[in-house]
Simulated assay, not measured.
Amino acid sequence: MLTPCLQLQAPCEKWAALLTDDRLRQQLCDRRMEKLKTVTAKTTAVKLQQWLENVFELGKNALENGWQQFEALVSPPKPRAARGKGDVVGAIAPVIRLLEPHQIEQTRRHAAGVLGELGVGNPEVIDALTQLLHTARDEETRRQAALSLGKISPGHPQAGIRKARYLDFGMQLEGHSVALIVAIMPRSDDKLGVFLQVQPIEGRKLPPHLKLSVLSESGEIKREAETRSDEEGKGKDNLIQLQFSTASGTRFQVGVSVNEVRVTEEFIA
C-alpha cells in the first residue's frame, strides 16, 4: 500500500518544507484564493415571475436550486399551542382595526405581519391587506402587507413572496452561516419591486466587510451595501439590505462577497 507521501507523488521532505516555509505557504494560499475567485457555478437564472405564479421549470424547482421558504431556513417555526377556529376568527377583527389609517405606521406594519399568520383564506383579511397596500405611508408597510397577502392568498395579483437560500463560503466566514433573502412584490407601474437581505442563519452578527451587490447582466455593480465592524474589529450588523424596482424581463445578478470571494445568483424579473 502506498504511503500518503508516495500517493501525492512528492517526497515527504518537500511537503515538510512547505509546512515550514512561510513564502511557499502563502503561494499555495494565493493559488487557492485565485481559484475560488475565478470559478463560476453553472446555475440557471431564477425567473422571479414564476415565484409569484408558484410555477417552476420541470426539474428546476425551488428546492433543487437551493431556494426555500424564508421561514423554513432563517426562522424555523416555534411550536405553538393549538387554537380553535373560533379563537382565530375572534382574534382577527381587532387586528384588522389596527390597519386603519389613523394608526401609527409601525402598528399597521406589525398588524399586517400578524394577519399573515392568522388569516389564511379569510376574505376579510385579504381585503384588509389589499386596502393597506394602497393606503400605507411607507414602503416597509407595503412590503409587509404584500408578503402577508402572499402567505394567506397565494396567487393573488398583488401578493408578494419571500424566499431564502443558504450561501456556502467554506472557511471564509469563520463558522458563520448566512442566507440570501429575496422578496418580490408586484407594483402598480407594471414593474417588480425587489428587496434583498443577507442575514446570519443562527442569529449571530454578520462578519465585517461582507458585501451585498446588485449587478447588471454584464457584471457592472449598480448598488452595494457592506457590513461594518466595531472597535474590536468584529461585525456589528445583524443584516444588510438593498431594494430597487425593475422592468419585467430584466436580467440582473446578486452577489454576496467576502475576502474577495463572491457567490453570485442570476435572476430574470
Score class of each variant (00 low, 15 high):
K234Q: 14
P207I: 04
K222M: 15
L210N: 05
H209V: 09
N238M: 14
I221C: 10
I201A: 00
K191L: 02
L239G: 05
L215D: 09
E224M: 14
P186Q: 09
R228M: 06
K211H: 13
N238E: 15
E224P: 02
V194Y: 07
G193L: 12
M185D: 12
S229A: 15
I181M: 04
K234W: 05
R228W: 01
K236V: 11
E202R: 14
S177F: 06
S216N: 06
G219D: 04
G233R: 09
M185A: 15
Q199R: 08
D189F: 03
L192D: 08
L215Y: 02
L196I: 08
S213Q: 14
E217L: 10
V178T: 03
E224A: 11
L215E: 08
K205F: 13
G175S: 05
L192S: 05
R228H: 10
F195L: 13
L210C: 04
D190V: 00
G203I: 08
T227L: 12
T227K: 09
G175H: 04
L239Q: 14
G233H: 05
E217C: 09
P186M: 11
L239K: 10
P207M: 07
Q199M: 04
R223Q: 12
F195M: 11
A225H: 07
E231T: 11
V178S: 00
S229R: 14
S229Q: 15
K234H: 10
D237G: 05
R187F: 00
M185Y: 01
T227Q: 13
T227W: 08
K191Q: 11
H176I: 06
L215H: 04
H176M: 08
S218E: 15
A225E: 12
K234V: 04
P208R: 10
V182R: 08
Q197Y: 11
V178P: 02
I181L: 06
E220N: 14
G203V: 04
E217K: 15
D190I: 01
I240V: 11
K211P: 02
G203C: 11
V182Y: 03
H176T: 10
E232M: 08
L215A: 10
L192P: 07
I240G: 05
K236H: 03
E224V: 12
I240Q: 08
A183I: 01
S188T: 06
V214D: 01
H209T: 13
S188D: 07
D230R: 06
K211L: 09
R228T: 09
P207Q: 07
I221P: 01
E232T: 07
I184E: 02
V178Y: 00
Q197C: 10
V198I: 13
D190T: 03
D230M: 05
G235P: 12
P186R: 13
S188G: 01
L180R: 10
A183Y: 02
E202V: 07
S213Y: 02
V198Q: 03
I240T: 12
